[in-house]
């Protein structure tokens, strides 16, 4: 009984929250990030190829030395500083779903940084090489690892041109209920698939970026903010020569 009432209360709260978010400003100096851009899909309905989720990252806006996106990913998905696990693994062995990369122009010596994670390719090499079918692409373009059938061979880690995947070397105990992870399996950015499925319409990194450098949205929807931005500005795919059609695009590199 009580549980139901709480749920009802939460539902009302979030309905109100979303309605208000649409107006943008909720208090002087307080801006809510755009919520509900992605329509919540009913819980019992499968993800479909009507959507293709992606990110647009503006490396000009990405502030040097800032790692808010990495920290947000860690606490949302319970890896790195967001978990008490992986104490025995060294830096090269530890989980890494997202990292910041600094680029330097050799002519001008100008340095700038950008976040780097799974690029959610349309033609993912990690899926091509997986011997068990554990590495797969969901209908809505999210590339995931099915840890139930992953045998930990790490072919996908070698195949990935973006060095986006990592392997878990030790027993874990401090996982998030939404993000199962365990020893002997490969993992990478899930594009916060649990948040997408519950209709949050954003990812932890996009939510946490105070510089608005990360924009989440539906690449298949011509009216989504991400599509409009990509029509307005020149964007790049990293290693576009591989013809992977990545779901994560960059500006300013």
């Amino acid at each position: 009984m009580n549980e139901q009432k709480i749920d009802q209360y939460r539902r009302d709260f979030f309905t109100k929250a979303t309605a208000t978010a649409a107006t943008g400003v909720i208090a002087p100096g307080v801006m809510l990030m755009q919520v509900g851009q992605a329509q919540a899909r009913p819980l019992d309905q499968a993800a479909s190829n009507k959507n293709r989720w992606g990110l647009l990252i503006d490396s000009n806006k990405c502030a040097d030395g800032c790692s808010d996106c990495v920290k947000a990913c860690e606490s949302e998905n319970a890896w790195g500083s967001g978990s008490t696990d992986e104490q025995k693994s060294d830096a090269g062995q530890k989980a890494q779903w997202i990292r910041t990369v600094t680029l330097k122009n050799k002519l001008t010596s100008k340095e700038h940084q950008l976040p780097m994670m799974c690029q959610h390719c349309e033609q993912p090499p990690c899926v091509d090489v997986c011997p068990t079918g554990a590495s797969f692409k969901r209908a809505d373009g999210i590339v995931l690892v099915d840890k139930h059938i992953c045998i930990g061979c790490r072919y996908c880690m070698m195949a990935c041109p973006y060095k986006a995947r990592s392997f878990i070397h030790e027993d874990l105990h401090d996982q998030s209920p939404d993000v199962p992870r365990g020893k002997g399996t490969v993992e990478s950015c899930t594009l916060c698939v649990h948040k997408i499925d519950r209709g949050d319409g954003t990812t932890a990194c996009a939510e946490a970026c105070t510089h608005q450098a990360i924009l989440f949205g539906d690449l298949n929807d011509p009216n989504s903010t991400i599509s409009i931005e990509m029509k307005k500005h020149a964007t790049t795919q990293i290693r576009a020569d591989l013809n992977l059609n990545t779901g994560v695009r960059y500006r300013g590199i």
Binding site: T20, V30, L32, E76, P177, G182, A208
Partner: peptide
């Protein structure tokens, strides 16, 4: 792999500050 106990959905402090303000 799966968590053995419930956890309140964790929000990053940056996000939860905004939620608190809201």
């Amino acid at each position: 792999c799966h968590a053995t106990k419930p956890r309140d959905t964790a929000f990053h402090p940056i996000v939860s500050d905004k939620m608190k303000a809201f």
